[in-house]
Design a protein around this nucleic acid. Structure first.
Length: 604
RNA sequence: GGAGGCGUAGCGAAGAUGGUUAUCGCGCCGGCCUGUCAAGCCGGAGAUCGCGGGUUCGAGACCCGUCGCUUCCGCCA
């Protein structure tokens, strides 16, 4: 291969091809003549002696330009700027004892340079290549190829590769087949908005990009590939968040002839292997299991962070003995009153700080947040005057001690749970209750199969329409959908929903009944995924599965709060790429080919 | 769609209650320097303070609007 340098000289890579990497050399390599290829990370010219830190993805090595090198070489070394791509030939030597750098894996040695070739120069950088940049995100995304050179990004992308490999390895080893499914599919009505791809060959028709391989993996079960998995790219046209992108990656799996626990066990095996191979952490399995009802009642979330306690308690028993009409009227209208004891927080939480907690609760629909402080004498502040004569009963009933803060939430069940749950999450952070080194998994099981949509006055699938009701509801789910639990499960890690799955419906008649409950017209079902329903009539096996978010998992392992930090080329929060400026307008002829006309929204 | 935060040099930041040459660090350019590893020292260039309007003798700061980014709610497994 011949590379052309900017100055017009020709450089043959053959002659300066690396014989070692920048992370590989140790004291045992002393006296070896080696060639390194990499980027100029730092350049420290002391006049007589001169140090260059050369970097590649394996590490950094200190290059020394001694005082007695030819003037030409010294001059070339002095001209090297940040991020020049260079080849360096030199001799490995031990550093003098006092100069050993214990913070660098290669800190015992340095390379005495004999020859430098500039493979490519570099413009002045838009931001410095540092371990973790604090540059703004737009600049990082615009120059993503530079951002990706940083140690932090390199480590995370490498971690991601290892995580994928560990998951794949476990699944292959336990008999799963990796099978690809199409990314140009038919639009389905359930879930998020689809990305559409217009068809050139068929005017007016569209493919959709898959939100997940859901239907195809079920069809693979019908085909007899009883253990399937795929590292699948998924697409959802929804607003971005820190842990969401328009396109993301799932490790998707499905199994035949299984019950719920089989799927959970396989998933625990994947996680155990991933954590062992990438973090050196031995996970305790099986993971804790919590019903959806318990998770909501105790922690106010279907993805509770169990790294700290502060579970909710029922405060309703203390309401009838008081004159607090707010709580009473909530109970009379079938609401709940929940209490959360915040240990030792009474002194630290002024009225102002409690108001901030109340604001958190209000963003989740709460009307307010009541509170009292526990003192040696009884209860103090907030709503304590209504409950003073029950002070002892409340203290012992809630297990509250001197100096604790009691927070009370009265609302309909779901609002009370979620808003107090938001307050709990916030307190977990504010009070520094979370041990960041802990990975706390739990399964949330027994989700409701249906949710009532007040606006639409109709039942909706809580997850999707292909999940199985639990056996004990098979006779009643049509007449009374509310209490029905499904064989659905979520895997939660440190407050993040990591995986989600279910045992599927494989019986066409049962599937039709579920469509009926959620008011999904038969004709529309036939139109949208009749092929799946039909496949069920050809000996479809019982099956179930799950998918976990790879981006989210790697994000948690990397200790980050945004999946952008573990995706090589993510979109920004507006769903655009500052680097290639996508999405972009296309030419008229392209639109014509696709039989499309663009109607721009009206400007107000 | 809604709420909050931010926008000052290539990058990161400072700029009490408005006051005249807008500050600091990194980077950039030039010079010095024999052991650094975020090297150090000296000098220099670089900013219509996101944009538009307003209040004022005077606006980076205050007000209104607008755009961009960002976090959260909605939405989304």
């Amino acid at each position: 291969m011949i590379l052309t340098a900017l100055n017009g000289t020709f450089l043959s890579m053959e002659k300066m091809k690396r014989t070692a990497t920048c992370g590989s050399l140790r004291a045992s390599d002393e006296n070896k003549t080696i060639i390194l290829n990499g980027w100029v990370h730092r350049n420290r010219d002391h006049g007589g002696i001169h140090f260059i830190n050369l970097r590649d993805r394996y590490g950094e090595t200190q290059i020394v330009v001694d005082e007695d090198v030819p003037a030409e070489l010294a001059e070339l070394a002095g001209s090297l700027k940040f991020e020049y791509c260079v080849a360096i030939e030199g001799v490995v030597r031990k550093r003098p004892d006092a100069m050993i750098n214990p913070d660098m894996p290669t800190g015992e040695i340095e390379v005495s340079v004999k020859k430098i070739e500039v493979l490519n120069t570099c413009l002045t950088l838009p931001f410095m290549i540092e371990d973790e940049t604090d540059s703004n995100e737009t600049a990082r995304l615009k120059y993503r190829y530079l951002d990706l050179r940083s140690k932090g990004m390199q480590e995370r992308i490498i971690l991601r590769s290892k995580v994928t490999h560990a998951a794949r390895d476990f699944l292959q080893r336990t008999g799963f087949l990796e099978i690809e499914t199409p990314t140009l599919i038919k639009s389905t009505p359930e879930g998020a908005r689809d990305f559409l791809v217009p068809s050139r060959l068929h005017a007016g028709k569209f493919f959709a990009l898959p939100q997940s391989p859901q239907l195809y993996k079920q069809l693979l079960m019908v085909s007899g590939f009883d253990k399937y998995f795929q590292v699948a790219r998924c697409y959802r046209d929804e607003d971005a968040r820190g842990d969401r992108q328009l396109e993301f990656t799932q490790v998707d799996l499905e199994m035949s002839f299984v019950s719920r626990d089989d799927v959970l066990t396989v998933t625990e095996g994947i996680m155990a292997n991933v954590f062992k191979e990438t973090m050196g952490v031995e996970l305790q399995t099986p993971f804790e299991r919590l019903s959806y009802d318990d998770a909501m009642n105790l922690y106010g979330s279907d993805k509770p962070d169990l790294r700290f306690e502060m579970a909710f308690q029922d405060f309703a028993p203390f309401v009838p003995g008081s004159d607090f009409s707010v709580f009473k009227s909530v109970l009379e209208s079938d609401g709940v009153v929940k209490a959360m004891v915040v240990p030792g927080a009474a002194a630290a939480y002024s009225r102002k700080k409690i108001t901030e907690l109340e604001d958190t609760a209000k963003t989740y629909g709460a009307r307010g947040l009541a509170w009292m402080k526990v003192t040696a004498e009884g209860l103090d502040g907030g709503v304590s005057k209504f409950f003073g004569d029950q002070a002892d009963a409340i203290k012992s009933g809630l297990g509250a001690n001197d100096g604790d803060l009691i927070l009370l939430m009265a609302a309909d069940w779901k609002t009370a749970c979620t808003s107090l749950g938001a307050v709990r999450s916030r307190l977990g952070k504010d009070l520094d209750l979370i041990d960041e080194s802990v990975f706390r998994f739990c399964w949330i099981v027994d989700f409701p199969l249906f949710e009532y949509n007040e606006d639409e006055q109709a039942w909706e699938p809580a997850h999707h329409m292909f999940s199985m009701p639990q056996d004990q509801y098979l006779d009643t789910f049509e007449s009374d959908p509310g209490p029905v639990k499904g064989d659905l499960y979520d895997l939660v890690l440190n407050g993040y929903e990591l995986a989600s799955g279910s045992i599927r419906v494989h019986d066409p008649e049962l599937q039709q009944k579920i469509f009926n409950v959620v008011g999904f017209p038969k004709e529309q079902a036939e139109e949208r995924f009749g092929y799946l329903l039909e496949s069920f009539r050809y000996g479809a096996p019982p099956h179930g599965g799950l998918a976990f978010g790879l981006d989210r998992l790697v994000m948690i392992l990397a200790g980050k709060s945004s999946i952008k930090e573990v995706i090589p080329f993510p979109k920004n929060s507006a769903g655009m790429s500052p680097m290639d400026e996508s999405p972009a307008l296309v030419d008229e002829p392209q639109l014509n080919d696709l039989h499309l006309q663009v109607v721009m929204p009206e400007e107000d």
